[in-house]
Design a protein around this nucleic acid. Structure first.
Length: 596
RNA sequence: GGUCCGGUAGCUCAGUGAAUAGAGCAACUGCCUUCUAAGCAGUAGGUCAUUGGUUUGAAUCCAAUCCGGAUCACCA
């Protein structure tokens, strides 16, 4: 039980005894006292001042007296400032909390409760490599999965690969035209980049052919459709759907190259999936929904044979669910896939990590499921995130301003290497250990940078700022961890000394207590992050905790403490801080080094 | 035009009913014979887009306005 939860029943009892008013716990505001005031926890008095008709100051005094009288061993003292009753708890309360929890390296993590969640993230197209936007998606998806696990959910990480369609045909056409049979191996290029290069070549060729046609007097829209390359791509898509063997073979070959490239990247950044879905295998599944929906009267057919749903009553538009030629659209596929996922996992919740440009689409998807009476409709949740922009504005592939994921990771590791060498603290590391450290730090910086912002909001990625490893950054937190580990390496903590804190540990100093109170908040922070589907809650929390530890560290010595009791207390504080940093960063997908 | 999201320090972001609005970066001052200075302490920097309303109390809730973005495809 948290301290705030322990205080509330006392306050409720006091209010009942003093004024005969009944209040529930949710009507009380109890928060950690701001550092600039004296006290540990604060009861906000304003909310019931009206009901009781006494001045806040008067109320505070009476309640404070009553609480101290009720349980002097819990409440040590109080003060009232304006409408705030600041309570100071006994040192033994804090020391007991520390004693019971400091060695628990799963502090804040809840055992499974049987709730099943499917998280879909990454979901790349197979015609080009991953970029910075994908990284935000992947880190978010991974992190929210881990956070939900820590809250007792069983999580299945899934990835839906968009492996079919006109985009991959474009790369295939360009490869046929320009490659002379080149492979990623022969070109010494990572597979996804290799295929992406042909996608670029396709567009270059398209532009060229288009300009020729326009020069010959054709208008723009017509020219786009009439170019030989575009016609070839369209034809290839038809051949693919018809299952033409040589097209399928080429498609498999090129997608294989892309997957090899993706796997390398996923492995490097520490992402992974329990289950892969391929659109080529699921894109037809949604069609049976159309019949079902028509039978139920949820969908209707227009004269030309196309099928729609009317959502005007919900304030939305009419939405197409099947083309007049009987082929499926994006929505049809997503309906089928949702059903497929449910059949595979019988989830309670299905989270889609998808950019906010698809808010409308996801809203419609959920609504259609509800109208069809699907039991899983309620569990559909769109974890919508904003675009990543550059200081110069939006990333545009046409202008070549897209930041490539692999380049980004390499660059961050390179910066980590350079800074590590400048500082020269790990000269005894082997080459292998160094490489691992650079990746740990570089990726830590990148992940933290992308996760520290509220997912809903679009964010600006400033390359200059991202390579700064000071302040509100991943390396700052990693550094704090390494610092603590350095202390603990010097001290062999035996089982007996682990729990024994003698009287010389008290009175608790300000920073000692502040740190304990900060550590105590961790489980509530995981819960909040899970409820809000927002990893930035943890990023901000762990930064503040690390910051507070660093202040404490410079003010008070752990190993050369004033007394044996103080030393034990501070060792336990250090251990618990390290445990929490390790858990919190792991929930963000960030590793922490023993030394750096 | 409809719908949704956003506007807080020079920049990037916290804070969504409570105390004197906070961090980081950038600028400026200090602190390494003492547990890792990727650190710590300090100075300076704000009409919380604007106007009106609700409230004991508003950056936070409501309304209107201004500015920015997304979306409203028989594309995915």
């Amino acid at each position: 039980m948290t301290t705030a939860e322990q205080i509330k029943p006392f306050a409720i009892r006091a209010l009942k005894e003093l004024y005969d008013v009944d209040l529930s716990e949710s009507e009380l505001t109890v928060t950690p006292t701001r550092p600039e005031f004296e006290g540990d926890y604060t009861l906000v008095l304003f909310s019931f001042v009206k009901q009781i008709k006494k001045s806040p100051e008067h109320l505070g005094k009476e309640i404070g007296d009553c609480l101290v009288k009720m349980s002097p061993e819990f409440f040590r003292s109080y003060n009232v400032i304006k409408g705030f009753l600041n309570l100071t708890l006994s040192d033994s309360h804090w020391i007991n909390f520390l004693k019971e929890n400091f060695s628990d390296n799963k502090f804040g993590v809840i055992a499974p409760v049987g709730n099943k969640v499917v998280v879909e993230y990454s979901s790349p197209n197979t015609n080009k490599p991953l970029h910075l936007g994908h990284l935000r998606n992947i880190f978010l998806g991974w992190s929210i999965s881990e956070i939900l696990k820590a809250q007792g959910n069983e999580v299945v990480k899934t990835c839906v690969v968009n492996d079919r369609g006109i985009h991959i045909c474009k790369s295939m056409i360009a490869w046929q035209l320009f490659s002379n049979g080149a492979t990623p191996e022969s070109a010494n290029t990572k597979g996804d980049h290799f295929v992406g290069d042909y996608y670029v070549k396709f567009n270059e060729e398209l532009q060229k052919q288009k300009n020729d046609l326009i020069a010959n007097g054709m208008n723009k829209e017509e020219a786009e459709k009439e170019t030989p390359v575009m016609k070839a791509a369209q034809q290839m898509l038809l051949d693919w759907e018809a299952g033409k063997p040589e097209v399928i073979d080429l498609w498999k070959k090129m997608n294989g190259w892309v997957y090899e490239g993706f796997d390398t990247t996923y492995k490097r950044i520490g992402a992974g999936f329990d289950k892969m879905y391929y659109e080529s295998g699921t894109y037809l599944l949604g069609k049976k929904f159309v019949e079902e929906g028509l039978k139920l009267g949820v969908f209707f057919k227009k004269e030309d044979g196309s099928v729609w749903i009317d959502l005007t009553a919900e304030g939305l538009d009419q939405k197409l669910v099947l083309r007049k030629d009987g082929t499926s659209v994006y929505m049809t596929q997503d309906l089928g896939l949702a059903e497929e996922k449910y059949r595979d996992y019988h989830y309670d919740q299905s989270i889609y990590v998808i950019g906010d440009e698809q808010n409308y689409h996801m809203k419609v998807l959920k609504l259609i499921m509800e109208k069809l009476g699907k039991p899983y409709a309620d569990g559909i949740y769109h974890l919508s995130y904003g675009m990543v922009e550059l200081p110069s504005g939006r990333m545009k592939s046409r202008e070549g301003t897209v930041v490539d994921a692999d380049d980004m990771v390499d660059e961050m590791a390179a910066v980590a290497k350079q800074k590590t060498e400048e500082l020269g603290k790990v000269k005894d590391f082997s080459q292998e250990e160094l490489e691992e450290l650079y990746d740990t730090i570089g990726l830590g910086a990148l992940k933290f940078f992308l996760l520290r912002v509220d997912p809903k909001k679009k964010m600006v990625f400033d390359p200059e700022e991202s390579v700064d490893f000071h302040g509100f950054t991943g390396p700052f937190i990693q550094y704090t961890y390494a610092r603590i580990r350095s202390i603990l390496r010097k001290e062999d903590i035996t089982d007996e000394s682990k729990v024994f804190i003698d009287d010389t540990a008290t009175p608790l100093l300000n920073l000692e207590k502040q740190l304990i109170i900060s550590l105590e908040q961790f489980p509530a922070m995981i819960q909040q992050a899970a409820e809000e589907h927002n990893p930035s809650v943890l990023a901000i929390y762990v930064f503040n905790a690390a910051k507070l530890f660093n202040t404490f560290y410079t003010e008070h010595s752990v190993l050369n403490a004033e007394s044996a009791g103080k030393k034990q207390l501070r060792l336990q504080l250090s251990i618990m801080t390290a445990n929490i940093i390790k858990t919190a960063t792991a929930l963000l997908g960030i590793r922490v080094p023993e030394r750096m």
